[in-house]
Structure formats: C-alpha cells, structure tokens
Amino acid sequence: MLVDSHCHLDFPDFADDLAGIVARAEASGVGRIVTISTRVRKLPDLLAIAERFPNVYCSVGTHPHHADEEDGITTDELVKLAQHPKVVAFGEAGLDYFYEMGSRPAQERGFRAHIAAARQTGLPLVIHTREADADCGKILEDEMGKGAFRAVLHCYTGGRDLAMQAIDLGLMISFTGILTFKKSQALRDLAAELPADRIMVETDSPYLAPGKYRGKRNEPSYVVETAKVMAEVRGVSLDEIARQTTENFFRLFGKVPAPAAA
C-alpha cells in the first residue's frame, strides 16, 4: 500500500473526473489520500470531497501565496476547524520567496500561527518552503524551542542543510515527481541519504507529474512512479519503500485510521 500524502483534489483540474481519480488511485494500491488546504476559507469544499470518499482526508490552512488574503486567521480558529474528524493536519503553510505572492511578514505570521496549532493539538503541519531555506530554518528552530510539534517539509526541493536541520528537529521530508526529473540528481542523492523513518512520497497533483507522465495532469495514482525512483536510489524494493513511507505517514498523520494490513 502507498499513500498520497499531498494533493489538491479541490482544484478545478479534477472537477470533472473526481470519482475516476480516486478509483484509479485505489486500483494502483494508493490506500489513503490527503487533499491539502490552500485557503482556510475554502475548507467546506475540501470537506465535501473528504466526506464523499472514505479513504480521502484533508488539512486546513493557508498557503503562503494567500498569506495576505487570510492574514489574521488565528491559531484558535485553526484548532477549532481541525476538530472535524476528516481534518487530519494543518497547512500547507510556510514561506515562498520564489513567487512572493504573499508578503513576507504575513507569510511568517501565518507560518507561526499554524505551528502553534500543530503544537497545541498534536496534529502535523504540512510545510511549504521554496527559496527560503535560511528563514524557514530559523523559524523552525525558534518555534521548536517553544515546544515540540510535528511536521513535514512537503515537495522538498531545498538544500541539504535545511533537510538535515529538519531531520535533527524530528521532522519528515516528502518527495514528489520532481524526484524523477532528469535534472534532479542532487535531490535523488539527498533522498538516498535521509533516514528511512523520515521519508514520505506525494504527488502535489495536479502539478508535477512524474517521469513518463511529464507535461500531463498529475493525479494520486502516479505516486507509484515517485516511489519507484525512491526505491531505486535507495537500493531497496518498491515493496520496501511502500511499507516504509506508509508506516511513516501513519506515524505522522496519526488521526488517519490505518487499515489492519498497514
């Protein structure tokens, strides 16, 4: 069994094919899907999808692109919304200095509010960080000093230093189809180096389709392709990568019920 720990089933790309997407994922051995929030105010759309499909869960949070739009959403509000049984994580929140669609102060405020919610509830935080390694690392160190929280750096494309800093802080690292791209040798080298109990796989679909699907709409069933490359670079079988990444997922996303065979 594999898990797609990060996708966006509420995006328009999936609107006409949602049942087929979930069915194809299940047929490919993807037993759980987490559809990730980018706007707290659109949580009802995510919940409608999660409630429709038994194996689909969701998060609640504000993507850094929308940090100004949702500036001022409090930790208490996030905690309250996470009481829904299908909400299993916070985020994605963090820092994006590549596009800078959200102002840096608003991104940081949102990031810290989401960390506080994760700390308060024990639910994991899904972290988005792009071209912001130094500031992300500083915030993680500062906030971990206030009290432990659980998190994953999703769609990891940052440097080795931030990855190892995150590992030292007890966090997870998750990889997408970018791992399969020809230009991603440094990322594959990092994926080979990380501890086995800290790695996960995801699609971030509808974006970043792996390998042979490059240029097409991505979907949760394609997480298998990322897992294959992960297995290759780590010198283990696909079954072993599926076992390890799935165990890691359920350890982090403790609110998601694991099947008896997992």
Rank of each mutant, 00 (worst) to 15 (best):
F53H: 05
K216H: 12
Q244F: 06
K183D: 14
S237Y: 13
R188Q: 10
P257F: 03
G235L: 10
V30P: 00
A163S: 08
S5F: 05
R217M: 11
A89C: 10
P64L: 09
R109P: 07
P259I: 13
M164S: 02
E143H: 09
K42Q: 15
L125S: 00
K42R: 15
M1G: 14
D133H: 07
Y222D: 02
R41Q: 13
D96V: 01
Y57A: 05
P105M: 02
G145A: 10
V126H: 01
K80T: 15
F111T: 07
M101T: 08
L81D: 05
A15T: 09
A196V: 14
Q120S: 09
S205N: 09
Q185I: 12
R32V: 12
G235P: 02
D16W: 03
D71P: 01
A48R: 11
G170I: 13
E70M: 06
R39I: 12
A231V: 03
D71M: 03
A48I: 14
A25Y: 00
V56D: 02
V224R: 09
A166P: 00
A116L: 11
V256Q: 04
E108R: 10
A23E: 15
G122P: 04
G72W: 11
S237H: 15
P195W: 08
S174N: 09
Y57M: 01
D71T: 06
A258Q: 11
L78F: 03
L46K: 02
R243P: 02
A15P: 08
D189L: 14
H66N: 10
G215S: 03
A258S: 15
E240W: 04
I33W: 02
D10Y: 06
K146C: 09
C58L: 07
I33N: 00
H6N: 14
I73G: 01
A27L: 15
T62H: 05
M200Y: 03
S174L: 07
P124H: 04
P259K: 15
I241F: 02
R32E: 02
